[in-house]
Amino acid sequence: MNAKRPVCAAPALETPAPAASQTYTYSDLQYTESASTALAEEVALAIAYNGISQAVMLVTPTDLEDFIVGFSLGSGIIEDATDIYDLQLSGSGSGSGSAQYAQVTIANRAFWNLKQQRRQLAGTSGCGLCGVEAVEQALPDLKVLPGAPLPPAEWLDGLRQRIGAFQPLGQHCGAVHAAVFMNGQGELLLGREDIGRHNALDKLIGGLIRQKIPTTGGLAIVTSRCSLELIQKVLRAGIQTLVSLSSPTGLAVQWARRHNLNLIHLPQKNAPRVYSPASENQA
């Protein structure tokens, strides 16, 4: 049902940059078509659980089944992938401006918990907590991880360059985030992309579940800023190490330390920085 990657819109229009001393009006501009410039797609995805509309998300129209499974788990709608009994996708195409619809059948227990949340989510690609109605939903009581050793330093060496192979859409269109999984042997196994940073992580988590890839000893890598909702999704998925190419927020660090999640920032030029667990100097 998903569109084939990469999914890009029609070529954009460009105008040559004027000289520093040049003045012009819009009527002076000469627009030419550039076949080499493409834009990432986004579509509205409406998700209903047991016939009840729950969420409308803006997503890149690739790996939608992975997204729905990961979103359901990462948002706390289900506790385990076995809570999903059926998933049906339909829609009016994959281009920008189209709509996709997901009908998800979940276990009665999960559906009862969902109704108790009273959450109607009108989501965008920028925020993973839109629509929650109570502080308890934004700051849920999540299980503390058992803790795991930090990954060997050599696993992070050249990681920014190596994950490029898992970013075909980003290289072709730009404007998308990526989430990549590295297994317990330091091998990059799976990557997912989306205009939304939390969407990309949802797709990755869903892909791991659907492909039955063990997460023990592995780590998730996100190319975006690392804020609280990404921490919550990784905790719910049971992944014990998160590597971010951008700095985490203070609240993300607090939650990572409180829940025994290894949190590492991988700067572009400097050495990796471990935010969680805290060192003696950080505590």
Rank of each mutant, 00 (worst) to 15 (best):
D86R: 09
G126C: 14
G218M: 02
D63L: 02
G191N: 02
N270Q: 15
R119A: 12
E33W: 11
S279Y: 00
P16E: 11
L251E: 10
T241P: 01
E41G: 06
W255G: 08
A17C: 13
P152H: 04
T60P: 01
E65H: 10
L235A: 03
T62C: 08
Q268F: 13
L235G: 00
P267H: 02
A12M: 14
F111I: 08
D28A: 10
G184I: 01
I84P: 02
H259L: 01
C130H: 09
A46E: 10
Y275L: 06
Y85W: 14
I78Y: 01
P168W: 04
N183F: 01
P16M: 14
A148Q: 08
Y26K: 12
T241W: 03
P6C: 04
M182R: 08
E187K: 11
P61Q: 02
Q167G: 09
G97C: 04
R257M: 08
G128T: 03
Q171C: 10
Q254H: 14
Y85K: 13
A153R: 13
I68R: 00
A278C: 06
S27R: 14
M182N: 07
L58P: 00
T82F: 13
Y24G: 10
T105D: 11
F71S: 08
Q117R: 12
A278Q: 07
S98F: 07
A220L: 05
L73R: 02
Q120R: 11
N281I: 14
T223K: 05
L145W: 03
Q22R: 12
L263W: 01
A220W: 02
L58M: 10
N50P: 05
Q22Y: 12
R192K: 07
R197N: 13
V180I: 07
F67C: 04
Q30G: 10
E229Q: 11
S244C: 08
Y24L: 07
S279I: 00
A252F: 04
L39N: 13
F111W: 05
L189V: 06
G238K: 06
R118T: 11
D83Q: 07
R118L: 12
L142Y: 06
D202A: 11
R197C: 10
S96Y: 10
Q282G: 03
P277W: 03
A271Q: 09
A9N: 12
L208G: 00
D28C: 06
V7M: 09
F181G: 01
L156G: 02
G170E: 04
V144M: 07
P214R: 03
E154M: 12
N199W: 06
A148H: 09
A12Q: 13
A179F: 04
A81V: 11
N183P: 03
Q282E: 11
Y49K: 02
A175H: 15
L169C: 15
P11W: 04
A200T: 05
L188V: 04
T23G: 15
N2Y: 08
G76W: 03
K143E: 15
P16S: 13
L87V: 06
P267G: 03
A220H: 05
V135F: 14
G207E: 02
H265L: 07
V144C: 08
R210E: 07
N108Q: 15
Y85V: 14
L45N: 00
E193G: 04
S224Y: 04
A12I: 15
E154K: 11
W255H: 14
